[in-house]
Design a protein around this nucleic acid. Structure first.
Lengths: 238, 238
DNA sequence: AACCAAAATGAATGTCATTCATATAGTGAG
DNA sequence: CTCACTATATGAATGACATTCATTTTGGTT
């Protein structure tokens, strides 16, 4: 039941079917089922309509484009991002939990990232809700108000980039025939400390290389941002 | 002149036209011209063929798919990323220059990012060359070899995510009708310190919000990574 | 019972990437 | 000089796709 107000008002104007056979909610659920089964390549308007026992053109009475469908999915996923840490706990730990959760949710939905990163949050209630919770956490930690959004954007950029990295194949850094021209790089790849370290849960189990890199970068970013809190904004560069 | 060796060897095997009318080099250049003119939506195999005065199907004698074309473009762009700082200067400054340059190059080529982030570097000479230079810089700065790749991946993730942010519209954080439900967020957006700070060149001119966020995150990441250098790899999380 | 607007339909359109059978052209071998 | 070989170019065809449109169905309201 996402945003019933306009539907109610519209229903007031004239006779309507009381059972909305199709609607944002059902479309979102069907899209998620499709994505879970066949991935984003399987998410076509035809497949979506087929799953809903409806003609493809019928969907356009409820969404104006496929991008609209992606927006619905995105906003639904945002509700799955863990913001509980910002309600009470220490800032460092809240950001950690939020960032891991955020990355894990979108690692399986990377095709959404180019959409999210560029589209306004208007008409995305769950997304706004998440931003409000995160902002509140920063505020409570004494962050300078005029730096909060920039800090969130920086963290989000790292999270989105890292979500792509999760889907990288293991051999992505295999230079192949070019290895001879890149001895230091090849050596660094070979000695990469994969499998060591602790997992996102703090327990001692093997983690993927992308988990290790994300953990390293996240801790660096959290510490670095904390240290720069209240300093003048800078964007210097040689 | 991109890797003439295979072509020469192939020419040795049998009779060939001495003037390669089409080839990776020309295809790459044409693709870049198309992207510059019409953006990535204008980069179609038909348009590419038209620009080269050739039938679309002819392209498939030189590339096996459109993804191959994107790979050619990507590797070409990698040559434009500034790695000069790693040859001599201090580590902090070298990373800074590299990261700004890397982000600026791919901010205008975000459709490539999902491709880059997932595809092996094999057969991408410029890409391998860049990684080698960066690895050498980390090595020279005394970085623990088994952490170099993870640190680079973390920086790259931040860079890729930030490249998307560059293309975000100014009103991306306008909550619209939902503003009432997100007072702290709305206030933080309004007080965002945009226009202040110094530009990437260190001079005093207005910078975009994405520049500010990138500068903030990059400095935090650089400082944080430097501080964590030589510490045990960690990926902890509550 | 008639009306009206939302919603569903089926056919059609245009844009893609990609494939395939065929044709061409230049080169080394005879 | 000529034949055969091979890379490369061609044009037509295919199938997937999002989207549009004229038309019909549907069900509550009057």
């Amino acid at each position: 039941m996402e945003n019933g107000a306009p539907a109610v008002e519209a229903r007031r104007r004239a006779g309507r079917p009381p059972h909305p056979v199709l609607g944002p909610g059902r479309i979102t659920k069907a899209a998620l089922r499709l994505i879970a089964r066949d991935g984003y390549k399987g998410l076509t308007m035809s497949a979506l309509a087929r799953l809903l026992n409806v003609a493809p053109s019928a969907l356009y009475n409820h969404v104006s484009s496929k991008q609209d469908v992606l927006l619905l999915v995105e906003d639904h996923l945002m509700a799955g991002v863990d913001i509980s840490g910002f309600e009470a706990g220490p800032w460092h730990q809240a950001v950690r939990g939020w960032a891991w959760s955020y990355r894990n949710v979108f690692a399986r939905h990377t095709p959404l990232i180019p959409v999210i990163a560029v589209l306004p949050v208007t008409n995305a209630p769950q997304t706004v809700k998440m931003y409000e919770a995160v902002t509140a956490g920063f505020h409570a930690a004494g962050w300078p108000p005029d730096q909060i959004i920039d800090a969130i954007v920086a963290l989000e950029s790292f999270i989105f980039g890292s979500a792509f990295d999760v889907n990288a194949p293991a051999e992505i850094f295999n230079a192949g025939e070019l290895a001879a021209d890149a001895p230091l790089f090849t050596q660094a790849v070979a000695s990469r400390a994969s499998g060591s370290g602790s997992g996102p849960g703090g327990d001692e189990r093997p983690v993927s290389p992308s988990d290790t890199a994300f953990g390293l970068g996240l801790e660096a970013l959290i510490d670095g941002l904390w240290a720069q809190r209240a300093l003048a904004p800078k964007a210097r560069h040689p």
